[in-house]
Structures are given as C-alpha cells and as structure tokens.
Simulated scan of single mutants.
Amino acid sequence: MTVDKFLAEDLYVDFSHPLIQKKAGELFSDETSDREKALTAYLFVRDEIPHSFDIGADIITAKASDVLHHKTGICHAKANLLAALLRSQNIPAGFCFQHLTLADDDTLGYCVHCFNAVFLEDHWIKLDARGNTKGICAQFSLEKPKLAFQNLGGYDEYFWPGIFASPHPETMRMLEKASSIQDIIDNIPDTLTETPDISE
C-alpha cells in the first residue's frame, strides 16, 4: 500500500506554513514515537481548538494554518489541522466522512461530518477531533474507533466507506465563501461524490 497521497501537502493541509512548523516543534521531539505524536496532536486539536459552533465563532476557517491562528474551526477545518500536524511528522493521515443530522433531529437537514484516519502501527485508526461537549466523548483509540457521533436509528445517518487523501472539496469551497456560522448552517454540503483513495 502506498501512503504518499496521505503525506502530501495541499492548500488546506498546509504543513510547511511557519505556524504549523512552530506548533509541531512545540508539540513533538525527535525522541517522541509516532504513537505519542498522534496522541499529542489529537488531544491538542480536540481540546485546545474549540469547534466554531461551540463558541459562536465570528471567524470561519478552512486551512490548517488559519485554524491554528484563529484557534477555531468546524470538524472539517479541525481535521485539516490534525492532518497537517501529523503529515509534518511523516505520519500518514487522511479523512473520513459521516452523514449526520445537523441538529439533534432532522429538522435542519443533514451534513457531511469529517474526522481523520491515521496510519499507526501498521493499520489505520479513526480519530475524531471535533471536540467533546454536550455528551460527546470522542477518544484516542488504536482499536475500535471512539468517535464523536454514533449513527442514530430512525434517521438517514451513515458512514461513507473508505479513506480519502484530501479534504472534501465542496465543503472547502463552502467554508471559503462563508462569513458566519449561519452561512455554514445554511450551506454545508450533505453529499459526497468523490471516490475514496483507500476502500474499506
């Protein structure tokens, strides 16, 4: 299996940006194992970068460096930051997607939720750095994923299969245009048409 795509830099996973490099230098040392680096990066993004909805942020971010600079982002943006930190350490990181209700029920429709896949100890693990609040309890796990959201029965919630090397293009375009949280609520995509880079 080639993981080159999962180590690459792009517009949104901009790990050569000075802010990302500086934070990586603060979080990691050469003696730190990949497992320790992944845990440290995950806890930093999950706990120190609040989800934009949770704090009513007035700044909308998409690029990893912007998420770090403004210290906020929605799940997709936070996943970009986690991927950037890990790829800066040559740890393969990708993206996974879930079809979820935007509210506690389907009154606001559905959205594409994003979390990460990370290649550690010869297998892919799933990590959701959305941020724990209001009963959400995502955790670092090398075995069974402990994600932010379980699919609710009675609603059209499910996981899209596979691991993607790049952020969701349509959501990135939406974030670039959005100027408020309401813009995100009104315009966040609820479909995924891309083909995964790794099938599951």
Rank of each mutant, 00 (worst) to 15 (best):
A117Q: 08
V112C: 10
M1T: 15
L142K: 02
L142D: 12
S199K: 13
F140I: 14
A138L: 12
P167F: 01
F140W: 08
T72R: 00
K37M: 10
M172W: 03
E36P: 04
L127A: 10
A165K: 02
L82H: 05
A148K: 15
D66H: 07
E9V: 02
R35K: 10
L102Q: 12
Q98M: 10
I163R: 04
P145E: 13
P189H: 01
E31G: 12
H70D: 07
F115I: 02
H17K: 06
T195I: 14
A77E: 08
D47W: 10
P18W: 03
S88A: 15
R130F: 13
F6K: 05
G162N: 00
S52G: 13
C75I: 03
P189S: 14
Q150R: 12
F6S: 12
L27P: 14
I136H: 11
T107W: 01
C96Y: 09
L81E: 03
A178P: 02
I136P: 13
A83I: 06
D47L: 10
E157F: 12
D186H: 05
I74H: 08
P161K: 06
F44I: 07
K146Q: 15
N116D: 13
W124Q: 05
H17P: 05
H123T: 14
E143V: 08
I91L: 05
F164P: 09
R35E: 15
L152C: 05
A57V: 03
P18R: 05
D122V: 04
A103L: 07
H51M: 05
T193E: 11
E26T: 15
I185G: 00
E170C: 02
K177Q: 10
A62M: 08
L68D: 11
F44L: 13
I125S: 04
P145G: 10
L102N: 00
L147D: 10
F149T: 09
D105R: 07
K177Y: 05
G162D: 08
H69C: 14
G154C: 03
C96R: 15
K22C: 05
G25V: 14
I184G: 01
L175V: 12
L7Y: 10
Y158D: 00
E121M: 11
L39S: 07
D30R: 03
E176G: 00
H99R: 13
I60G: 04
H168W: 03
L68E: 05
E200A: 08
I59T: 13
P145V: 09
A79P: 04
T101W: 07
S180I: 01
S88M: 07
D47P: 10
E143H: 08
Y155L: 06
K78N: 05
G131P: 12
L100V: 06
T32Q: 13
A129I: 03
D105A: 07
D197H: 13
F15L: 11
I184K: 01
D128Q: 12
D14T: 06
D47S: 14
D10C: 11
L85K: 06
A64D: 09
I198R: 00
Q182W: 05
A138T: 11
E194M: 13
S180D: 01
S16V: 11
D10Y: 08
S65G: 08
N151S: 11
T2Y: 12
Q21G: 08
D58G: 02
D105N: 15
L19P: 02
V112S: 11
D122T: 14
I184T: 01
I185H: 01
M1C: 06
